[in-house]
Amino acid sequence: MASAEEVAKAAERRDVRDRWLLSAPALLVILLAATGPLLIVLVYSFLTPGAYGDVKWQFSPDAWISVFMERDIFDDTLSVAVAHVTIFWRSIKLAVVTTLATLALGFPTAYFMATRSEKTRDLWLFLITIPFWTNLLIRTFAVLQIIRNEGIINTILLKLGIISAPIQILYTDTAILIGMAYVYLPLMVLPIYASMEKLDFRLVEAGYDLYATRFKVLRKIIFPLVKPGVIAGSILVFIPALGAYVTPVVLGGGKNMMLSNLIELQFGQGRNWPLGSALSITVMVIVMLALLAYVRNAGRSGVRHG
């Protein structure tokens, strides 16, 4: 008996070892070309800004203090960094709304794709990705053409006499929202599609046999089953939206900064790399906390439904 136990243990050890080997390439690439170099950023956040960018190798907590507190340059009082809080809050808000918007559009679209005949599904998959074979900048410029005052929407509405003057969409938060929802939509559709494609419709049938309404079937059967896809999609949209750089500049008119613009300012014209580093780490921590909370929450309710 003891030997059987040993065999099982050895098998388990082998399994764990294999799993490490399998994940090694991904971990290695990420360590070398993404995570590892970030340690530099962590170190930089505790240094003194160099005169014209870069850092001086001299310890200073100033960067971290000025993430949260600001010293008024005129009356020298220390207070909460209102500007930073405002920018963080605006970015988070826009990212959340973008995620919800893409979910509302993306879920039915993924469902539609997944319920096509097996042969045409790949075609739909390609149809949804083709617009994205052009890069983000080009797509953002294309959106700009549509929502600007002389753009298609305003021209049609004017011609139809529905409005008498163009609606100013461009250079508003709505424009940023439209742009981000547009550019990040496939990040929502694809993961949901990937987990929905496998959906066992016998379960749905069973639901109808028990006289469930369509909405109830959707909520109680379909949604819980594709939850991993919804979670993956939400993460893939939320985080890039939070760090969006191009879209706010092109469509929002750049009057109000988002997180990325604030950080970019420190590494660019502001020449305060330590503050840029400290702000970046703050963003990372916020994202990680949000992610943990979200995955925990979603995971728990998933279990309840499943």
Partner: peptide, 20 residues
């Protein structure tokens, strides 16, 4: 001209406040 680093820091603060 290129302003002194300390001056630049003041300008960055004004700029951040402008674009917040």
């Amino acid at each position: 001209k290129m302003c002194a680093p300390e001056t630049q820091e003041l300008y960055t603060k004004i700029w951040t406040e402008l674009q917040k």
